[in-house]
Design a protein around this nucleic acid. Structure first.
Lengths: 348, 348
DNA sequence: TTGAAAGCGATACCAG
DNA sequence: CTGGTATCGCTTTCAA
């Protein structure tokens, strides 16, 4: 040892509300009268070494008395890996469908002993966001939507992520993909309306930018369903406000449409109301179909036809993640996971 | 498994992507031909020391070439603190109101250079959850709802959290509190119905357990509003299903109610539909009021009266957090932050 | 059965 | 202006 370090006494902390520094395993060891190694053995139930029962008890008691909580950062630094699964937090209100999916996923991953963390990356764009996520060295990253490019995937993998999974309409180079075929939703709706004999078909396109990622594919799906037929497709921009709907309804007869796919059930309700106020009969004058199969659609009169969407089960996705983590070398899997089926009720 | 995930064949990943171990600052230093200290200085723009421009460039280039991303765990281990603000991820579908609040909050905290993380603590109860959160050594913890007791607060503070804030109906010992006075919502509704001359008042109580934390105070609020008056209060259990609503509506005339507070706008819509199907006129026979001021209420006929709820601004909460972090010694603040006002439309 | 000590990655002091 | 080095809290060999 080059020179002797002398411990400098610290200024005593204020009397009562002493913000004692956070207890470490060394503190536990001292209180229990053992070494830090022993503490680690006891607290992690290491089976390789056997610790005497009295010692175990002393360690546990010391830990409880101090309110010891292990330091995840130190642990994963030492271990060289963590069990954190990171997802970007959604930046817009999510429906009950996705909420439920998320809950299931968290539960399933929790059972597999992963810790799910949603990272509030607001205002970070593309690769910046990927870097921010990579700083946490998650073992896996699940990204929904289009917030991730191939470069982002590289950054994440370089920094140790053993699985990168994208949930969205298209797969990303190098990442596993859960292909949510949003076009299928529109395709379902378009085919349904066509099959019901409708030929002049409108498609609501929300004016809210955040929904572009969903609305564009849904529109394209309808276009694809109608391609090569004698039906026409009209895009109908609509903001999620009564006024906007009223304006659209006011020029409805001029549009001469006999059917409309309203993007989702909420926009459908908005539009249905406006159409009815305008004296347009649904479905006689105009057929109307939504999507997402929300409860509210069942409550409308006429009952709203809709496209029911089935997301992958959280358990399946959790298993995909676990598989990928255990075997990072494997080629990325791609799964089509979005089930879309028409629920025909009274509005179409 | 509800349906099968269909595997799509993917082109195998290029063989060149050898999983090199993740680059550290030492690797950057080596490549740039400088010491790790210099790398740290350059990358953190430390102003105390001045590094020659050529060196800076070499470091930056090396970092970029290696795809270097700093290791957050190592950094915060060394620094002794992080800038992570932790919130438990909500375990049930949240409405647009709360989503918006959450988004604002994340943005505001982001601007103050905090990283917001939602911890998916599913299946963890009370103090277990607090321990799990504490392992991440967040600088602040925001807990909404009643998932935190005084012991949890102690655990978190012991492990270095400089601010613990509870958002909910009641304050928790030792934590800052944003008091969401859910009773006020019910009180508003009850007073309104009473003022409109209604005396036999029903209150919908959702059968979904997860909503207890909200529904009980709303019910109590109505009770308080009616206390000491000649009005009666009837609890109306209701599940969020058409069938349940139909059953309730079927015995409506026997109940002899002239008004009902439907918990929120969604339950109100469910009930209004069922009542109308039963021939009960709203508001003539029975006045109806919801809560949350959702768009859908405006679309109902009659237009739904509701209780508009104002959450605290994300900016304000972010500032409270920042203040608390900078001055952890200060006494916990408690703010009443929930504004409830009746929006009188046509259903009451 | 327990203890001493090396090191995970990054930072900040101090010496040169 | 730059390099060596101790340190954060924890796990895990290796010795005793």
């Amino acid at each position: 040892m080059p020179y002797v370090m002398v411990q400098i006494p610290k200024t005593p902390a204020p009397a009562s509300s002493a913000p004692r520094s956070v207890p470490t395993s060394a503190d536990v060891a001292r209180l229990a009268g053992v070494s830090r190694a022993t503490v680690s053995y006891v607290l992690n139930k290491t089976s390789a070494v056997r610790i005497s029962e009295p010692t175990r008890r002393r360690v546990h008691e010391a830990a409880k008395e101090l309110g010891y909580v292990p330091h995840a950062a130190a642990r994963s630094l030492r271990a060289g890996h963590s069990r954190m699964v990171l997802m970007p937090a959604p930046s817009f209100p999510v429906g009950p469908l996705y909420s439920r999916f998320l809950g299931d996923l968290q539960l399933a991953l929790g059972r597999l002993d992963y810790t799910v963390v949603q990272h509030g990356s607001v205002g970070l764009h593309g690769d910046e966001a990927a870097r921010a996520w990579a700083e946490l060295r998650p073992v896996a990253v699940l990204v929904s939507g289009s917030g991730l490019g191939p470069k982002g995937v590289t950054v994440l993998k370089r920094s140790g992520a053993r699985a990168v999974v994208s949930l969205g309409p298209e797969s990303v180079e190098g990442a596993h993909a859960l292909l949510m075929d949003y076009e299928a939703v529109g395709h379902c709706a378009g085919s349904h309306l066509y099959a019901r004999g409708r030929r002049r078909i409108g498609v609501v396109v929300p004016e809210e930018d955040r929904l572009d990622a969903f609305s564009t594919p849904r529109l394209e799906g309808v276009r694809r369903a109608l391609h090569g037929t004698d039906a026409t497709l009209t895009e109908l921009p609509l903001a999620y406000e009564e006024e906007s709907a009223a304006r659209l309804a006011a020029r409805w007869r001029d549009l001469g449409l006999d059917a409309v796919f309203a993007y989702n059930d909420e926009y459908a309700m908005l539009l249905m109301r406006a159409l009815q106020d305008e004296g347009v009969r649904v479905p006689d004058d105009t057929a109307l179909i939504g999507a997402d199969d929300l409860m509210l659609g069942r409550l409308l009169r006429p009952r709203l036809s809709t496209v029911h969407i089935e997301l992958p089960s959280g358990r399946d996705l959790a298993e995909l993640v676990d598989r990928a983590v255990r075997n990072p070398g494997a080629a990325p899997e791609a799964h089509k996971v979005l089930g879309a089926t028409v629920v025909h009720r009274d509005s179409s």
